[in-house]
């Protein structure tokens, strides 16, 4: 990373390379928006083609979905807290909130996998109908992102423990927080346009 360090900024913005990485990640998030939009478009086109198979109201269960939603929402909040404490250079609080975030994320994943297994047992698989193909791939892509985020976060926690808060680790922490919040944003749309929509109609 280049040498000029500006100490008046938060750690993650202090070096030029950090600022490049953060901007680059935002642009990557732009690409992610397009990626999920495409999956939503596919769901929008195919979501009502049941081919005689189960329909959303047959399989969706409000309680499970609500729990998943609350878990992810809360994890987004705790992730924000982690960054908040990072900016106060409070390593301990940072780690505490970050680990809570991960646990909530893992809880979300657990619920989601359970939900999928349940569907499969009811005979609603990816191969059943166009609706279910698009449902599983949209949710699966989100779930895969969450999984990837958890692995990534574990790597980062190790680095935080090894190296403490430096401009580099702070930047990594900040970037993963953007990623995590973004996954929550995607979930809001899944919650609304897949689950709630399916249960209204």
């Amino acid at each position: 990373m280049s040498a000029n360090v500006n100490h008046s900024l938060p750690l993650e913005y202090q070096t030029e390379q950090n600022r490049l990485n953060i901007l680059g990640f935002w642009i990557f998030l732009g690409a992610e928006i397009v990626l999920f939009a495409t999956l939503f478009a596919v769901y929008g086109v195919l979501g009502h083609r049941y081919a005689g198979g189960p329909t959303p109201s047959d399989i969706f269960k409000l309680n499970d979905v609500l729990i998943e939603t609350l878990l992810l929402l809360t994890s987004s909040f705790t992730c924000g807290l982690a960054v908040f404490f990072m900016r106060q250079r409070n390593m301990k609080q940072l780690l505490v909130w970050f680990v809570i975030t991960l646990l909530l994320g893992a809880g979300f994943l657990f619920m989601e996998i359970r939900e999928f297994i349940h569907y499969v047992h009811e005979g609603a698989t990816m191969q059943t109908s166009a609706f279910l193909s698009s449902f599983f791939v949209l949710l699966g892509t989100h779930g895969a992102h969450v999984t990837f985020g958890i692995i990534w976060a574990v790597m980062l926690i190790i680095q935080l423990l090894q190296r403490g808060l430096t401009p580099v680790t702070a930047r990594k922490m900040f970037i993963i927080s953007l990623y995590w919040h973004f996954l929550d944003v995607v979930w809001i749309f899944i919650f609304t346009f897949v689950y709630l929509k399916g249960m209204v109609g």
Partner: peptide, 14 residues
Amino acid sequence: LYGTHFFTLSSGGS
């Protein structure tokens, strides 16, 4: 590879 129905003629694909 996995038999989904996004673009197939059967099972509601487009």
